[in-house]
Write a protein that binds this DNA or RNA. Structure first.
Lengths: 336, 336
DNA sequence: AAAATAGTTGGAAACGTTTGCCAATTAAGG
DNA sequence: CCTTAATTGGCAAACGTTTCCAACTATTTT
């Protein structure tokens, strides 16, 4: 790459002012006489001057860039969050460096380190638990981090999410209330605390309220994918299960289609409730009854919170963990 | 943000060498004695030194960052491409600045300008036509740009895609071959040349081969969304249409569900072929017969091509427009 | 009319790297 | 040992901004 042709210095020379003045007009500093400002602006337009953000970043120690780590961009849940993040980021003039982590601890660590090297002003983290290594990395920097739409085994990080436990409890209770004898808990990796902790607790709590014993054989663990759900249909039919709370929409959609393709009638012969209210729940037939969450808003609010932290607004320490309201919609995968 | 605490200079001092040497070991320059290298490496680890990528970018004029402009990250088509892009980007140690353009000319221009200001080493552009303003912008820079999975009214830009015209022709012909009297062309905005040009030509060409006249009333334009498809079902039923080639999967899924919900049996009473083979086609029931394209590969190859261009490898000018093979799968939305 | 004040501008030192050039050290050959 | 050629390492100049501080100008104030 050859030397940048028109720099702040070129503009300064052409407009017969100093670089300091050019810098001021570019950055909207009011201490510039209107005529001078206009003259500089004219030269800028004429020369098609484009300020170099890298140099600016070095001098000002702000890059107006935030890092976003996402497990899988093609997952509708995370994609929806990402949309909210991006929208408010661009509203606040931030750019986003987006990196897929594949939920792989090693890779996560690498991408975060890289993000930090790039001097991002902040990080939005979506994913599952954070490794000790990563924890140290976060601790060793004062770049603000917010966790979005996930629960992570590090309470020290600000986060924006819903109350997964309460939501799971309601979903399970809903199934129980309508007489299901046994409700399975079909989940993504139990290695993630959101599944083995929050949601499972909610599930158990609903069981307890209904005076049902927890039956270990009813928790069915998968990798959380559509394919996994589809494949599990057979096993679930064989087990004689008639109702299930599912922790993920892709998984639920797979299960539903697997069931249907195997001739099981949903909701008549099987009732199903899912967790995230992504597009998938409305795409399949029957449509899936689900916990609802304001996905876009979770992303948007996370980013908004991050902007505050980046501005050094450390007030409202109590607001650092934002729990948004969730809801519930009955659709076609449960009986009326 | 306070001054970075440990810099290359700190390391140099601690290791009793010059910054030049530290720079060399960090960048794997071979001209440094093994012991020296080891000593420096030790200090780096001990101090947890993290090279400042911004300073590096300024000095070296390379940011190892590429800009990606995407119309909508939640669209499964683009998300799938993005995944391929991200994977090979990280393979080549590039980061990605991802920006949603919302297919809005004004916003596109702004984000591209911003990307350029950030000194990205290259740009992957997904979207529709490029405005004159944007064309000038691309022309005024020598940052390489590649167009991925889209057709854009600027032949001068390298691109990676399939032959949309041929694919549309095959899809239409498929429907015609099995006796459909009239095949509708249900499309996203005709303002985009991919729809008004490539695909429509393919459609017409298939009609001509089958000695059918082109009927303007059979081209139905929408905004391309799921909702639009769903809403159009009524009109399509009223028009007595029995078969359609649809230019987008979201649109097709919406239409399919709209039809089904209105009591139309697909494929018995209506046959449907879609264009992109995204997850949506397999999620809905009946599953949608579709043109297939290697989505992930399109993204991956685009990025690979971009790396070559960024390396200044301008050989193979003929390879600058990569047309990948497409296919076709019969699924359940067409009769056997 | 001198002094104080406010408003504009310029000068120059950062910011943390990379890199071209040159000096010094080491190894090799005679 | 001396000469020559590698190899290694250091110096310092970029890179293109921001920003602190000083200086200058034009107003007010006294």
């Amino acid at each position: 790459m050859e030397k940048q042709s028109v720099t702040i210095y070129t503009v300064a020379r052409e407009a017969r002012v100093s670089m300091a003045t050019v810098s001021r007009v570019v950055n909207g500093n009011p201490n510039v006489k209107p005529e001078t400002r206009q003259k500089v602006l004219d030269v800028i337009k004429q020369l098609n001057y484009r300020p170099n953000a890298v140099a600016r970043g070095l001098a000002s120690k702000k890059t107006t860039t935030v890092g976003v780590v996402i497990p899988d961009i093609t997952d509708p849940y995370f994609a929806e969050l990402a949309l909210g993040i991006d929208d408010v980021a661009s509203m606040y003039k931030y750019n986003i460096i987006l990196t897929n982590s594949d939920s792989d601890d090693g890779k996560i660590f690498k991408v975060v380190r890289n993000l930090l090297a790039k001097q991002v002003d902040g990080i939005i983290f979506m994913g599952h638990d954070v490794s000790d290594e990563l924890k140290n990395e976060f601790a060793s920097t004062n770049t603000p981090v917010v966790v979005a739409g996930s629960v992570v085994n590090d309470d020290s990080l600000p986060s924006v999410r819903i109350d997964y436990q309460a939501a799971a409890k309601e979903a399970t209770a809903f199934l129980l209330k309508r007489g299901a004898q046994q409700v399975a808990y079909i989940t993504g990796p139990l290695q993630y605390s959101i599944n083995s902790g929050d949601r499972l607790s909610g599930y158990k709590s609903a069981l307890a309220d209904d005076n049902k014993d927890f039956d270990d054989s009813l928790v069915i663990e998968t990798d959380g994918s559509y394919q996994a759900g589809y494949a599990k249909a057979k096993e679930i039919i064989e087990k004689g299960i008639k109702a299930a709370y599912v922790t993920d929409d892709s998984l639920a959609a797979g299960l539903l289609n697997g069931l249907t393709d195997a001739g099981v009638k949903v909701p008549d012969d099987f009732e199903l409730v899912s967790s995230n209210d992504t597009k998938y729940t409305k795409l399949v037939r029957p449509m899936i009854t689900s916990i609802t969450q304001p996905l876009y808003d979770i992303g948007a609010i996370s980013m908004r919170l991050l902007t505050k932290l980046m501005d050094g607004d450390d007030s409202n320490d109590d607001e650092k963990n934002v729990i948004l309201d969730h809801g519930f919609v009955e659709r076609q995968s449960t009986r009326k």
